[in-house]
Design a protein around this nucleic acid. Sequence first.
RNA 1: CGGGGCGUAGCUCAGCCAGGUAGAGCACCUGCUUUGGGAGCAGGAAGCCGGCGGUUCGAAUCCGUCCGCCCCGACCA
Length: 437
Amino acid sequence: MRLSRFFLPTLKETPAEAQIVSHRYMLRAGMVRQASAGIYSWLPLGYRVLKKIEQIVREEQDRAGAIEMLMPTIQSADLWRVSGRYDDYGKEMLRIEDRHGRDMLYGPTNEELITEIFRTSVRSYRDLPKNLYHIQWKFRDEVRPRFGVMRGREFYMKDAYSFALDYPSAVHAYNRMFVSYLRTFARMGLQAIPMRAETGPIGGDLSHEFIILADTGESAVYCHRDMLAFDIFTEDVDYDSDLQPIVDHWTGLYAAADDKHDPAACPVAPEDLVEARGIEVGHIFYFGAKYSKPLGAVVTGPDGKEVPVEMGSYGIGVSRLAGAIIEASHDEAGIVWPEAVAPFRVGLVNLRASDAACVAACDALYGSLNGAGVECLYDDSDDSAGAKFARMDLIGLPWQIVIGPRGVKAGTVELKDRKSGAREELSAESALARLAG
RNA sequence: CGGGGCGUAGCUCAGCCAGGUAGAGCACCUGCUUUGGGAGCAGGAAGCCGGCGGUUCGAAUCCGUCCGCCCCGACCA
């Protein structure tokens, strides 16, 4: 993509409303723009990141055996009255009335809807287990939205719902999601720590939050020091095998968010206890028959008796992750994208747009990169060199290739690693080979 | 929802206390000069001073009211 054809409204100064680093950089890098409190437009650069994150989540859900579908953003209040949550959810739920005076709502979650779909379609234990998910915009009318997309009112979320015949099989469904979450966050370059959690208004009694540590995290978290040394989980998994050993390994050491942490009852010696701030990027629940019972989602078991299905739900904050990744990966100059979620893999900088030789060298390499399938943002503007460097650092693409008169004369380009800052002079062919590899 | 703060040019902000022709820096446009870390000079364009009402000869400025946004707390993927 040529910068001259792209839409990248970067800001030199920090907008006053942004307090934390991810929010500041997302605004400055032209990723998002606030539409109203807690509601954002995703500009092209930010949208590319959002889609990368979404795709990783999707691939790992699919790998774990979940089936993708799509439910609407607007729901009828009727189902929520049946489950009893229409009143319980309170003002967080955005309520709407249609032209016929029917009560509608902008869905904050989808347990009722998915259970209803399941109820009318599945009658036999032979159709179990199932795990259905979708990735969709949600709305929770937070009293006080803040931290940019990390605590917005409108947010993009993956939510999966598992259906099982009995408790052991429900636990296996839970474990599948647990393990797939480890993989999902690892692919984004994040060390996510599963922690015991309150189940909140969703309800249930087996629940973990996946937390990434960051100074600006919303909640205090506590965990055993050794957990930080765990290798991030990247191995391939047979999701049909017994996953309990993996889950046990990751839950064997103490880790809890503040709402589950009791200093008096903490089993970890003070010198081994890490106290930090964390951002919740995923949350998984087992909640049994909490919804299947009132909504009548029952199946006939092998013994011919009807039983309510055992359910769980599993969320990942897709839009929140965009902010959370920046919190975990940035420096004074801007964002430092992990390769897997970077909006482009490489930024190609023409230092001298007025110089025919520089233009020719850049155009040639740009063509080669595109030909090799390397996502490239090509700064073909005639801005000053300093402005280009600063902008490229700000938007945080993992690699920069700088071509200027100096290098063109010497037959070299400069390859810069955004994360380490290391620069290297090499031929355009070598740079291409490096990035295409 | 309690407490606090702020709405003036695209962005960051001054001006308000003490009413009297709407400002600066950055960004933008034109031209020239520059060109390896957010360049220089000259010129230009740009604002219903958040909305409504009031006080006044006169309101960005004073008073009232509404709206929007931010921060702290309580609450949440």
